[in-house]
Computed example of a mutant assay.
Amino acid sequence: MDEPHAHSAPARSRSFRESLITEESVYGTILVSGMIVASGSHQATLVETFLTVVGTVVVFWAAHVYAGAVAGHGVIEGDQTTLPTAFRRSLRRSIGFLISAVPPCVVLLLGAFRIVPDQFALWAALWVGVFILGILGYSAFALRGSPWHIRVFGCLGTASFGVAMILLKAFIH
């Protein structure tokens, strides 16, 4: 393991949380919301929207992992980081990108399988994105030990990106 504190259970739990509370998680959530908005503006079915979102997320995630591995592999003179180590670090750092995409995609699937109406699924998936962004913003400040009011501002600030996507969808339609 790369970190010296990674052997204890609390350290592993914190490390996992820190792997999820990243800019990649925020970016992945906003990407999903953007793809939902874009697919909806093209009158795509929910199955098409789901497939477009999942395909786009996987390609962006793979490109992000690749770029992180290349950028983290011996780019600084004297750095002896091996390519496999750089790849593992990039993979670990980027896992939030994928995980943050799962809840909105599940909501899209509920619509695709006709469990909920299409429009409800689209709007609910966007609101799930807002919720995820809020949690990410709050959690980022909580991990740093910020007071509760700063955590709330972090929550609202980060969630505002999801609200911006909702406003974009509302204006496009």
Score class of each variant (00 low, 15 high):
2 D>T: 14
8 S>T: 15
9 A>G: 12
11 A>V: 03
13 S>M: 13
14 R>G: 02
20 L>W: 09
20 L>I: 14
25 S>L: 01
25 S>R: 01
29 T>K: 03
30 I>E: 00
33 S>A: 13
34 G>M: 09
35 M>W: 05
36 I>S: 02
36 I>F: 03
38 A>Y: 08
45 T>E: 05
45 T>C: 02
46 L>D: 04
49 T>R: 00
50 F>N: 05
55 G>C: 07
57 V>Q: 08
62 A>Y: 15
65 V>D: 04
65 V>W: 03
70 V>S: 12
73 H>S: 11
74 G>Q: 07
74 G>Y: 02
76 I>V: 15
80 Q>S: 11
81 T>I: 09
89 R>K: 15
89 R>L: 07
91 L>C: 07
92 R>N: 10
94 S>Y: 08
95 I>P: 04
99 I>D: 06
100 S>E: 07
108 L>G: 01
110 L>F: 09
111 G>K: 02
112 A>D: 09
112 A>E: 03
119 Q>K: 13
120 F>P: 01
120 F>N: 03
121 A>E: 03
123 W>D: 00
127 W>R: 05
129 G>E: 00
129 G>I: 00
130 V>G: 00
131 F>S: 09
132 I>Q: 00
135 I>A: 07
135 I>Y: 08
136 L>R: 06
136 L>Y: 01
140 A>M: 05
141 F>E: 00
141 F>R: 11
147 P>T: 09
148 W>K: 14
149 H>K: 14
151 R>F: 08
152 V>E: 01
153 F>M: 10
155 C>P: 04
157 G>S: 04
160 S>T: 02
162 G>F: 00
165 M>L: 12
165 M>A: 13
166 I>W: 06
170 A>K: 10
171 F>M: 14
172 I>D: 06
